[in-house]
């Protein structure tokens, strides 16, 4: 028997769960330790509270990303990828900054990452 009601409930549960998940991510307090990684390798681990204002240039297959640190915040300043999604993401807050074409990720380190830095 085709039971559409069951699938309506499944869809509704997924939708509500996704909203709750979003809220959890948004309300999570931002950390201080930021990692910049490319292609699965961590390039930089930075403590934003101690960093002075500067820019970091990362190259990938001839394409460049310029990351700027200013007043204890970090964002993508320039990128020569076609979509510029990473720049539009703005300052690093809840969501990691991702440059899909250049495989670059800027994110807050999780607990284990912070421990590794402390050691």
């Amino acid at each position: 028997m085709k039971n559409a009601k069951l699938w309506i409930i499944v869809a509704a549960v997924i939708f509500i769960a996704a909203i709750v998940w979003c809220v959890i991510i948004i309300t999570k307090p931002p950390g201080e330790i930021v990692t910049i990684s490319q292609d699965g390798e961590t390039l930089y681990t930075l403590d934003l509270s101690e960093e002075s204002d500067r820019t970091i240039t990362v190259e990938y297959e001839g394409r460049e990303n310029v990351i700027e640190i200013k007043d204890g915040r970090i964002h993508m300043l320039e990128a020569d990828c076609p979509d510029h999604t990473c720049i539009n993401t703005g300052w690093l807050e809840d969501l990691p900054i991702v440059c899909l074409p250049n495989k670059l990720v800027i994110e807050f380190a999780d607990e284990s990452g912070a421990d590794a830095v402390a050691r």
Binding site: I14, I25, G40, L95, P96, V98, K103
Partner: peptide, 18 residues
């Protein structure tokens, strides 16, 4: 990207996707 960081985007994609 060899990273799990992108999973953070999933709930936002799911809401808009629905």
């Amino acid at each position: 990207m060899q990273t799990a960081a992108v999973i953070t985007y999933l709930p936002f994609l799911l809401v808009s996707g629905c």
